[in-house]
Design a protein around this nucleic acid. Sequence first.
DNA 1: CGGCATCCGTAATGATACTG
DNA 2: CAGTATCATTACGGATGCCG
Lengths: 123, 123
Amino acid sequence: MPKEMDEPKQQPGAGCPIRGVLDRIGDQWSLLTLEALEDGKKRFNELMREIGDISKQMLSKTLRHLEQDGFVRRTVYPQVPPRVEYELTELGQSFLIPMKTLIGWAEQNQQAIISARQRHENA
Amino acid sequence: MPKEMDEPKQQPGAGCPIRGVLDRIGDQWSLLTLEALEDGKKRFNELMREIGDISKQMLSKTLRHLEQDGFVRRTVYPQVPPRVEYELTELGQSFLIPMKTLIGWAEQNQQAIISARQRHENA
DNA sequence: CGGCATCCGTAATGATACTG
DNA sequence: CAGTATCATTACGGATGCCG
């Protein structure tokens, strides 16, 4: 990794826990994955199907990130056909709260956003 | 562009206003920019300085996106040294609410996340 | 079944120069 | 000051194949 220690500046990295968190949940799939895990344990391919248009690689990578950050717990069952289950940790579940707030806002305001976008398209 | 019309599936795109919104606010700079605009009108270079490590191009692009989505209003003063100011719209301000919730959570839990990350690094 | 490794095209991004 | 245009570099994302 090229940079892991960073920003000699204060504004960006120091006062902003947002960055560290955002970088993880801000990507294309983390939120969707967390949402998919909302209602309990899921297996890898279950998550694949549920999310629908995520690739193995991305799901894998996303899950590893989430696991690494303590949002998700990974359980491997030492069986012949491997069985791996993912579930939210306490941290992961607590994150659902602010996430819900965000989603709620998105639901309420998506129309306004779509309208604004169209206004600009035709402008 | 290869795909602009998409998802024959329902889960991902249909029931999820999250996607549309996330794609915009989920990027590296949108949240930071909105936060920088929280306390009122700002000029382009002011935002540059405040955010710190964003490039002209990225700030420009981010602002255009936010403007396009109706989060930000851009005002150009027809003066000799150009003066352009950015400010949050109603929509943009209303978005601060869920955003605050998210930031608050991030602040409270960043330590747990950092710990989890380190635990994995050394594992 | 789970998921890492590889290949490859696309898109994001930083740096810099240039314009009004 | 406020950007846009261009270029080079990298990161991302999907598809596929292989292995435990």
